[in-house]
Simulated assay, not measured.
Amino acid sequence: MFALLFLCCAFNAVAQNLGAFPTTLDFKLAAGQGESQAVTVSNGSPRKVQFRLYLNDWIRDSLGGHIYYRADTLSRSCAKWVSLSTTFIELEPGQSKQVTVKLQMPEDPNATKEMKWAMLFIETVEEANASASKTTAASVRNLLRIGVHIYQTPPNVTKKEIRAYDLVPAKDAANTYNLICQNTGDIMLECKAHLELSAIADGNKTKLDQIEFPMFPQQRRLVTFELPKNLAKGKYSALAVLDGGEDISLEAVESEIEVK
């Protein structure tokens, strides 16, 4: 389905009708290979909308937040090999257009030794008349943006591996624990983690809801578990389980915790 954007205030109705599909482009290219994929940008709003398109580098931090950088800044960037069929689109109400995203890998085998990625931003701009003394100038104000993830995983890069290191109390919140884990493999993984508690006093068991999250290769991650408010006070054996998906063994760490 289309990725819809939401914005408070007066522009909310328009934002809900702007979209891009797909929001993830997966490439699996060897050295020297190229491939083009299409992204459809749509305007379901009642007004004409203009978009500018550009690339950024990005990473996920230890809590899963996105940090953005200028294109072709990071060692894992594939931005320099990406070309766009256009960097500007204007859509009338109800109109859609396709943008071609081409990834062309160089012949250099070093370029395909590891997974690389980038982000394509499709950002709305609005022209507004701004009066300055006796002249009128067009000013551009950024409004919204959609991020399209671009992933390049060479066919020779296949190692899947995860590690769960420790379960530790969160420093800034009571009855909250962080599972410290890492993707020690070479490709991005869609991971799941959950926490199982067993009361030492009576053996009563509690299982917290599963948390799903992606991890880039070599990324370290903190997965935060907040204990239920109604959990009885006392000591518990806590088992944190990390699942990296198919073909990967489960990882787990066990710790004794106390609810006060």
Rank of each mutant, 00 (worst) to 15 (best):
residue 147 G to V: 06
residue 117 W to C: 03
residue 82 V to A: 09
residue 83 S to K: 08
residue 128 A to C: 11
residue 147 G to W: 05
residue 142 N to Y: 14
residue 92 E to A: 07
residue 128 A to R: 12
residue 79 A to P: 03
residue 89 I to A: 03
residue 64 G to R: 07
residue 115 M to C: 02
residue 97 K to V: 05
residue 82 V to D: 07
residue 107 E to F: 01
residue 128 A to I: 15
residue 84 L to R: 06
residue 119 M to I: 06
residue 92 E to F: 08
residue 85 S to N: 10
residue 105 M to F: 07
residue 138 A to R: 14
residue 64 G to H: 06
residue 136 T to H: 10
residue 60 R to H: 07
residue 123 E to M: 09
residue 78 C to I: 13
residue 74 L to S: 14
residue 73 T to S: 13
residue 103 L to F: 02
residue 115 M to R: 04
residue 101 V to C: 05
residue 147 G to C: 06
residue 113 K to T: 03
residue 96 S to T: 06
residue 139 S to R: 12
residue 138 A to K: 12
residue 60 R to W: 05
residue 122 I to V: 08
residue 112 T to V: 03
residue 119 M to P: 00
residue 124 T to Q: 04
residue 79 A to F: 06
residue 98 Q to T: 11
residue 87 T to R: 09
residue 108 D to L: 02
residue 99 V to D: 03
residue 125 V to H: 08
residue 119 M to R: 02
residue 76 R to M: 12
residue 112 T to E: 00
residue 141 R to P: 08
residue 62 S to A: 08
residue 104 Q to R: 08
residue 97 K to F: 02
residue 121 F to W: 07
residue 98 Q to R: 12
residue 78 C to W: 01
residue 125 V to G: 02
residue 75 S to I: 05
residue 124 T to K: 02
residue 110 N to V: 02
residue 110 N to C: 04
residue 73 T to N: 11
residue 114 E to T: 01
residue 126 E to K: 10
residue 131 S to V: 15
residue 69 Y to F: 14
residue 64 G to S: 10
residue 80 K to E: 10
residue 76 R to G: 15
residue 67 I to Y: 14
residue 112 T to I: 01
residue 99 V to P: 02
residue 143 L to D: 11
residue 133 S to T: 15
residue 130 A to M: 12
residue 137 A to V: 14
residue 75 S to W: 06
residue 104 Q to F: 03
residue 135 T to S: 12
residue 99 V to T: 06
residue 61 D to F: 00
residue 84 L to G: 02
residue 109 P to F: 01
residue 120 L to V: 01
residue 96 S to P: 05
residue 106 P to I: 03
residue 74 L to N: 15
residue 126 E to W: 04
residue 85 S to R: 06
residue 132 A to V: 15
residue 89 I to K: 09
